[in-house]
Design a protein around this nucleic acid. Sequence first.
DNA 1: AGCACGCCGACT
DNA 2: GTCGGCGTGCTC
Length: 723
Amino acid sequence: MSALELVSVAVATPLYRLFDYLAPAAMHARLQPGVRVRVPFGKRTVVGVVVEPPRSSSPGDFKYRPPLALLDETPLLSADLLELLRWAAQYYQYPLGRVIEAALPGPLRRGNAARDSSPVWVRLSVAGTTAKPPSRAHRLLGLLDELAQGPRPDDALDSGTLRKARDKGWIEDCHAPPAASGIAADAPQPSAAQCDVLRELRAARGFTVSLLEGVTGSGKTEIYLQVAADALSRSQQALILAPEIGLTPQLVSRFEARFPGRVAPFHSGMSESQRAQSWLAARDGRADIVIGTRSAVFVPFRQLGIVVVDEEHDASYKQQEGFRYSARDTAVFRAQQWKAPVILGSATPSLETLANGRAGRYRHLRLPQRVHRTAPPRIDLVDARGQAMSHGLTSSLLATTEKHLSAGGQVLLFINRRGFAPALLCRECGWVAPCKRCDARMTLHRSRSRLICHHCGYETVVPQQCGKCQAHALAPVGQGTERVEDALRERFPNHRVERFDSDRVRRAGELERLLRDVASGDIHILVGTQMLAKGHDFAGLSMVGIVSVDQALFGVDFRALERMGQLVVQVAGRAGRGTEAGEVLLQTHEPQHPKLRTLVEHGYGAFADELLAERVGSGLPPASHLALLRAESLDAAAAMRFLHDAKAGLKAQAGARRGVAALGPVAAPMERRAGRWRAQLLLQAEKRAPLQRALSAWVPGLGDLPSARKVRWSIDVDPVDLY
DNA sequence: AGCACGCCGACT
DNA sequence: GTCGGCGTGCTC
């Protein structure tokens, strides 16, 4: 062995390569893959991760620099985590250093020690139990009172008061009370359908993927709880993914109630240091169940035994910028790594997952019945053609709303559009207020008296005159949540109407507060966007009105219809009280649209089958595999030029592109956005392997094209939309 | 991405 | 005479 060895280090840069450092003999044994090092990088110092075992150097290697410091005694990233990250970097064509950066919680990414800094617990000392602080020392008294109930973690208490109490000798550190081992006894008796599903799941050995199809309220969460219990009883851990933080608290509390002290949450609503704690707790086996959003799929485990992806169809599992991974697909890879089963749960499975089920790659399990309710809601179409409309609401929709309100029911009206109106039109000349930075119309937000572009955030005051003919004839066209909210307030002045969208519900906790008012019956009419479509159970909701889905029927994106169907079924699922089925009305100007008819007459399954058949016919996913090279630039022609060069580069790679078609480049459906001109090149392949081969040979060199200088580009493997 | 180097316009 | 614009080159 030579005195100096080379180590390959992944550094967070956009470069598709590793960097070698020359390590002194004293470091060799400890420079194992997964260890973090502080290294000089250009003029900076950065934290990198060793990704290859050290190898011997040759005399010509003097150009390399030594690492400045070794940051871990034992690898921070286990071999299996590193394997996962390497797979993701390869599959999604993103530099390994940046993949690692995205997978590590902030403190660990910055090189902080990987130690358990979970809170110290404190309790009353013997002296503390009889302590008599002066009655004016409110805080001190409060602390002693609280500790009289039992030990508390110090991070939940005021540090100044703690210090005073420590100085007096009234409190002392202690161990955290042991987490209740095993499982709280309140697991309900599973239904017959749940028993069938559980029997199927338990019969499986090793890696299997199961699609668990079940409507809202069919008891999917109980299945997750039971399979997690199975894993825990084998001393294995569980990973549970949910699409949004908004839904995680409920899931966390149900798991926390069943498995006290054994759950580690992991989502963007937590502080970075809390996330680092959960990450380390799972890695070291101190936490048995990790529940989190997308990024939790990269949390390391000591012994992973089950993976659950709830609402697997949800688009938020796909990261839409930077490292564009799919947490659902990555979760499947993880389960395979651990030879563990994975459950993909949904009432409205994605076409990808359904196709895998039809092909026999995934098992398809069903929970057909609602546990507490009878029939799933029927959806009735309301023909809006020729009907009198008031702010987008037909008189029949309003009449049904009135019927339910007077019967004491609550009503949800769904519109997938924020603001008052999606356009401001001149009735004289037809001019529509445009965004000056995008190929888009400005949305009128009347409550704030602003025009706002929903694509770039650009805002202006509301103009009084037409921008073209100066006429004072501007009128809002179409409707958003604000307008429907106003219309309902006017029509039902004695009922409380609340709006649920990201404008109204800005701060954390606000949604919870409003939902409490819904639960208590204070709110009678809920108007909102997809925020209302997910998760929340509304016990008193007897009617759901879908104001419009017509844009989706003619949407440019190939997934527009699929998403429409999922959204409609999810929103419709909110309706129903106790054992009464709810009433669901879907208002449309296209009541004869064949897809809409299939959806309401034959249900999501038949609807999905039709869409799948069409995808096969048109060669779109899941019948093919796509990768999208996007580029944007302030210069109108630069993005297109780069994509042409990129395409020429692909064609030059003779062998590599067999089985891969390159379509375009074409201007993006919205060519100008936020002042940038955008274009895209689509790669399409029947099989994944040739696409992957072509990408690996092609993407790492794209940044070296001279025309890449003037553009921002990105590659999106398995894109969810083509915008 | 950072960060530095390098070569041409409006300011104390 | 300089401060600073962003083109272009490099990162073990």
